[in-house]
Design a protein around this nucleic acid. Structure first.
Lengths: 345, 345
DNA sequence: CTGTTAGCGCTTTCAG
DNA sequence: CTGAAAGCGCTAACAG
């Protein structure tokens, strides 16, 4: 077998078969003007016959760009987590960009910089950053990417670095909306089981809860707050702890749907009726939440739309860069929360 | 701004800075033998100072291979679905391969061949095939890939094409195991709410259920079987229908955990006690299943391990190909089911 | 042990 | 409108 088992028909093959120069074929392929119609036809015919397709690698080399995006994400296996979604793949496809995927698992000691470098070696034109901000070196790596290399980056997480545009969820409003809903439903002793304490998203939701409680004149001290891990385990442990402190609590705002799932299980085990004894609300509207027992009221986070927006922002930055424009400030996209009322409240 | 905003330090820069030829730098970078130690040191030093990194695109071009894998998957958003996972990303990373991701959404009319071609244009060395077999042209595309192009492909789905090695779950044994567990628990009137009727995986699980029932001398006719859509909706509808046909059913084998989730919700709504009145078992062990109400007994499918195996198989095929070996038959990997007993049975 | 030459497949520039 | 030449960054083959 040849050393190049994957060799395909090249532009040269087409050129000689059609009796024209490489240049002409290139022009036809790239839909450049200056080609006589008969020539164009003939070349197109040859291309079709030979099944020619442009080698993107070769094109990348000479153009100094790859039409591909580096995606750095965390925890693909993480249930309901921050991950690559249909919005991202679909939008990239529409715009003619490919996706190079790297995953940084939370347990992985490899610094994320390794992934970034490896992506850079493959000449990605920009980065879609989906690592959560509590990863080691997070801020510094983003800084290097943006300041030193001047590369386009769009984050779908903590926009702590003001130089990095982001497409993110309005976590604060989500917390506000969830808590207000519980209050409107007549609940007064509302506790909050938050996500990971070091997470910006968790903190914002906590803040929303606090503000909503305060504006209603309800207590929202640290004794009514508990941190978990975004998983059901955290919900179980959180409700246990909060019931010790406040046996009379009448509603739980869970940091996300998974936390709510665990908390509801714990409530069932204690013979509490949902929502009569305790109401529950989550955040995310993960697939499945509508079939929890009881179906969970939640704040929907449309991650597909967010992904779509992020890709659009990133590509517009890339195109501007290659067009030689100065760095244009890109406006952030903040995704609004949406209340989905079901039977748990 | 230059036409090449992403230009980096090249091998040429290193060569002139270190006062050696391109070749010597290349040899150092590729850890080739024939380099004098002092020279090597000096080059390494220069590389470090200049922050040189090899341009993989250029390397790909001349080597005719890209050290990247094309991943064609279905429904990233699909809850608990067949998707790219930590096993895949981690194993590819370890072996020094990149992942180029394409998603074919079920609703997308674009033929999957488009994705395949686009991946080929980017010179992927092989394919990880995660499209379900009911996609249009599925078999034909795989055939072309393998027979015509002779490209390495590993499937994580329906191994209907014997030329395509696969890393798949033992769906039949899963059905057998689930049903036997229910029988051992003393259940006799066991119904099955399966997945999509056209899916091979669903059919295999159905077959497992049938065999287990028959070997126990229990009835397993079509009247005790119902097809869904792998989602909770299917579980709700399925249980409703089966309860009409068999009001005395005492156990449900759900095609997957999501189906079980929906079916359990419907059971709760009818005031049935789980597992006293009806026992439930699922397949998958999705994150969350352990916190359903009640926690779901299920057959675990370790997709991370399956992903890892698939990547290993694929890379070994690729390496063999580039080493000039004849196509070596790769042994399939069949992942064993694992029973996880919880409170729903 | 080291350097030179050629060329992967393509696009860009410049001549005709 | 078309072609020739140069070269993106790298590695393979061959000299020395």
């Amino acid at each position: 077998m040849s050393r190049f088992p994957n060799r395909r028909v090249s532009i040269k093959d087409v050129a000689s078969a059609a009796g024209v120069s490489l240049q002409t074929v290139s022009r036809v392929v790239n839909k450049s003007a200056n080609v006589a119609e008969p020539t164009r036809e003939r070349v197109l015919q040859t291309i079709h016959e030979l099944g020619y397709r442009r080698n993107e690698i070769a094109r990348n080399l000479i153009q100094g760009r790859s039409h591909s995006l580096g995606v750095v994400c965390a925890g693909l296996d993480y249930f309901g987590g921050r991950q690559i979604n249909g919005g991202i793949t679909a939008e990239a496809e529409i715009q003619g960009y490919s996706l190079l995927l790297k995953e940084h698992q939370p347990s992985d000691p490899t610094p994320p910089d390794t992934f970034v470098q490896s992506l850079l070696d493959r000449q990605v034109d920009g980065f879609l950053w989906m690592l959560s901000d509590n990863t080691a070196d997070h801020d510094q790596i983003l800084d290097t990417l943006v300041k030193k290399y001047g590369l386009p980056v769009v984050a779908m997480v903590n926009p702590r670095n003001p130089d990095v545009p982001h497409a993110a969820f309005d976590n604060f409003s989500a917390g506000l909306m969830a808590t207000r809903h519980l209050i409107e439903r007549g609940r007064r002793r509302i506790v909050h089981i938050a996500g990971l304490p070091r997470s910006w998203e968790a903190q914002e939701r906590v803040r929303g809860w606090r503000v909503a409680m305060q504006e209603a004149g309800l207590p929202a001290g640290d004794d009514r707050l508990c941190y978990g891990n975004w998983g059901p385990e955290g919900g179980v442990a959180g409700l246990q702890e909060l019931l010790v402190r406040h046996p009379d609590l009448d509603a739980v705002f869970a940091g996300n749907d998974n936390t709510a799932l665990g908390a509801m299980l714990e409530a069932h085990r204690r013979g509490k009726h949902i929502p009569q004894d305790i109401a529950f609300i989550g955040v995310d509207d993960t697939k499945g939440a509508g079939w929890f027992f009881p179906p969970l009221t939640t704040i929907r986070q449309n991650r597909v739309e967010m992904g779509r927006q992020a890709v659009r922002m990133l590509i517009s930055m890339i195109e501007a860069r290659f067009a030689g424009e100065e760095t244009v400030p890109v406006t952030n996209y903040v995704h609004p929360p949406e209340l989905i009322v079901r039977e748990s409240t």
